[in-house]
Write a protein that binds this DNA or RNA. Structure first.
Length: 340
DNA sequence: CATCCTTTGAAGCCA
DNA sequence: TGGCTTCAAAGGATG
């Protein structure tokens, strides 16, 4: 890891995502509004004839003075340079925000091709509208690209969660699994399932190494990004969240969990998930009902291989699980008798 | 192009 | 405080 921070900041998120409701329609509406705003911005830029619209936006005339208006610019800038920057700012309202958001923007910024965007003649008008001639599709495309870049600059960089012990283990061992015979064609999910099992089988001392690594990473992360919260990254994939929420709501909600089933005193009987305060595996397998359980067996590593608790039998045998409620037992007996 | 799959652990949210 | 959800990684599959 040459620079630990680099691969943590990979994607960008919208600053105002938290203000949007969970409602998918609202999300769409929000996205549409953004599109409309972007289009309007493009049109405004395409039609720029002077600096009046820019000034009316109230954007500060950033380069009329060097400091303290732009303290990050530091020392002396030549008058010629100042003049250049000022004219660029006046030509593009977006340029100021770019400047304000990136210290080293001069290394990255490519000035917009403003000359090709301008009408061939300042007096040229559109015969249809009587207004100024719009830019060519090519220049509009260029504008779109610039606006996209600008938006990326303005967006808050997403600081990712530090990796936990298992994630570090996975990262370290994924390639090994891939290289093993026949695993090259395996899908990620399949590999992760294998790694999950290996993690469970890993001796405590070796797991401890990864936990220590994870702790170090967590401390480093906290040091680098004080005030960061995992919450900052929540609700980005609202669609996914909403879908899952609906699915969960449709599931059997009154099914017993290990805690209720066995009680706190018998925590050793709890399933892996309940021990970790996660969704009960037994509830999951029961919640789909007996019919479902035969159609769709538990996925490998999820509910099928419970190390802590013997899973409920899904065989047709009437031998009853000790954990099954009386009503469920009655029902199973009934079905069994009907089928035989 | 976005999301799913699949795993574990950490952290946030809600009642 | 318990229970639940989300997000970290990965990359092929899928809609």
């Amino acid at each position: 890891m040459a620079d630990e921070g680099l691969d943590e900041v990979k994607v960008f998120r919208k600053v105002d995502t938290d203000t949007v409701d969970d409602d998918g329609e609202d999300d769409q509406l929000f996205a549409d509004k953004q599109d409309v705003a972007a289009e309007a911005e493009i049109e405004e830029e395409d039609g720029i004839q002077g600096n009046s619209s820019f000034q009316s936006l109230g954007t500060p005339s950033a380069f009329s003075t060097v400091s303290p208006a732009v303290p990050w610019m530091g020392g002396y800038l030549s008058p010629a340079y100042q003049q250049m920057m000022q004219s660029m700012t006046l030509m593009s309202p977006s340029f100021y925000s770019l400047m304000a958001n990136q210290r080293n923007i001069f290394n990255q910024f490519k000035p917009p091709d403003v000359f090709s965007q301008l009408p061939s003649s300042s007096t040229a008008t559109d015969p249809a509208t009587g207004g100024p001639i719009r830019s060519t599709p090519k220049s509009s495309k260029e504008n779109r690209r610039l606006i996209k870049e600008e938006k990326q600059q303005n967006q808050k960089p997403l600081i990712k969660k530090p990796l936990n012990a298992y994630m570090i283990f996975m990262k370290d061992n994924r390639q090994k699994v891939l290289e093993e015979d026949g695993n090259a064609s395996k899908q990620s999910a399949e590999i992760n399932a294998i790694l999950g099992k290996r993690w469970q089988q890993l001796p405590e001392e070796e797991q401890k190494i990864y936990f220590e690594k994870a702790n170090k990473e967590k401390e480093e992360h906290a040091r680098k990004y004080p005030g960061w919260s995992a919450r900052d990254n929540y609700a980005i994939h609202k669609k996914k969240k909403t879908v899952r929420k609906i699915e969960r709501n449709n599931e059997n909600s009154d099914a017993k969990k290990c805690r209720a089933r066995y009680g706190v005193a018998q925590q050793d009987l709890w399933c892996r998930h309940c021990k970790r305060k996660k969704r009960c595996l037994l509830v999951d397998s029961e919640g789909h009902g007996s019919d479902d359980s035969t159609d769709s067996p538990p996925t490998p590593g999820s509910g099928g291989d419970l190390p802590d608790v013997k899973p409920h039998t899904t065989s047709a045998s009437p031998s009853l699980s000790s954990t099954m409620s009386a009503a469920a037992q009655q029902m199973q007996n009934f079905i069994w008798n009907e089928c035989n």
